[in-house]
Design a protein around this nucleic acid. Structure first.
Length: 107
DNA sequence: GCAATGACTGGTA
DNA sequence: TTACCAGCCATTG
């Protein structure tokens, strides 16, 4: 099975971080890219579009607090159900409070 | 090898 | 606040 475009080291790292995001918290594509220390936000987004079906992709949003344009309402509804801090209006996430630094709790 | 595309980001208008 | 532009990085044609 070499040659298959399956789970590579990079993909596994990205998925691992996404799965590690606790309920009510979110991470931006750039944050994940920086956390794994490779590629960029676009690569993370590409991985999500291909393998995001097996992880809580709705916890991965843009820096402006908006979920992926392809699943805007879907992800927003999921986050709201988990108790994520929504901004007044309930159309975006309060990144300032919902942003998660990683497996280590910042404080 | 070059050009186009994309689940992005930051800055300026 | 929203809208548009340029930059970044890997994959695809």
């Amino acid at each position: 099975m070499l040659g298959r475009v399956e789970h590579t080291a990079y993909v596994e790292q990205v998925l691992a971080v996404v799965e590690a995001i606790p309920p009510g918290r979110v991470m931006s594509y750039g944050d994940i890219a920086e956390y794994v220390g490779e590629g960029g936000p676009r690569q993370v987004g590409r991985v999500m579009s291909e393998f995001g079906g097996g992880v809580p992709w709705w916890r991965v949003i843009r820096t402006d607090g908006s979920p992926p344009p392809s699943h805007e309402g879907e992800g927003l509804q999921r986050l709201r159900a988990e108790g994520a801090p929504l901004r007044p209006g309930g159309q975006r996430i309060d990144m300032r409070a919902a942003r998660w630094e990683g497996p280590v709790a910042p404080r």
